[in-house]
Amino acid sequence: MMQKLKSGWVTLGIVLALGILPPVFLWSGQAFYMDLATRLIILAIAAVSLNLILGFGGLVSFGHAAFIGIGAYCVGIPTYHATYGEFGAIATYSGLFQILLAVTAAALFALITGMICLRTKGVYFIMITMAFAQMVFYLFVSLEAYGGDDGLVIDTRSEFPLINLDDPLQMYLFSYASLVAALLIVRTIIRSRFGAVLRGAKDNNERVVTLGYNTYLYRLTAYVISGAICGYAGALLGNFTTFISPEMMDWTRSGELMFMVILGGAGTTLGPVLGSLIFILVEEVLSHFTIYWHLPFGIMLIAIVLFVRGGLMGLVSGNAN
């Protein structure tokens, strides 16, 4: 119990530090760290969304990068048409519209693919989610109108009342507030009766089914919520990088998201944030030293799977293995 409290405090401290430190970096003239922190926060939102189904629901989705891509293109495409004409119905710079579109489109994609994926289990589920994500990848590669393989530059960031995303600090704080909101949403879900069913089905599906719950519907709902949050993260990422391309939803991106969740500790509310933090920092430090940084990085990933059980949250709380 004490150890559980300890790990909670450590991560809570990190989350708070993430709220305070980057603005300090900015004021001290270190804009680079601010950029890094913004990217980290946005990917952490995606990891938190994946954790909802992977960590708490036991559903190993290998296709979450698709939701990021869908969200990002839901910012890119309306902006493109607002700038270059055609498709008046969706042509707008309005951030509220774009975010709503991103969340809806991601949720819809999650609903349709989830209905098929969730009929399968185990390794089938892993591969099918991966294949569907690759389908979206190839769809955007073949859409020449939006740049195809080369991607799309977002000329104008989403416009919100009172908020200006062109300002790095405001972009950061907006993302940070979104992360906190995503964490609160996941926490509320997990502590509700819905969350209890979801976690119960992970441990023993038959038992929960016997209790009279339609676990398929519960899982589908969780999958849709997770996809929607991830689509939101994609909309943020598009706004942050101002350049979007199918590469954002390559299956290796999905793999990285999974790693962030596992690294931090799947099935802990704050774990994915810790995982994203370590992942991005290690990536940044290693890529500083050599262009072959994927080699030590890959070895590190293998070593973590082989020797660290329960992720870093497990290490902190002292119950690894």
């Binding site: 793999g255 999974m258 890959g298 590190m300 990933l301 799977v305």
Partner: peptide
């Protein structure tokens, strides 16, 4: 999946 992902890298 995760370990072989590392192996790919």
């Amino acid at each position: 999946v995760l370990a072989t992902f590392g192996l790919i890298l």
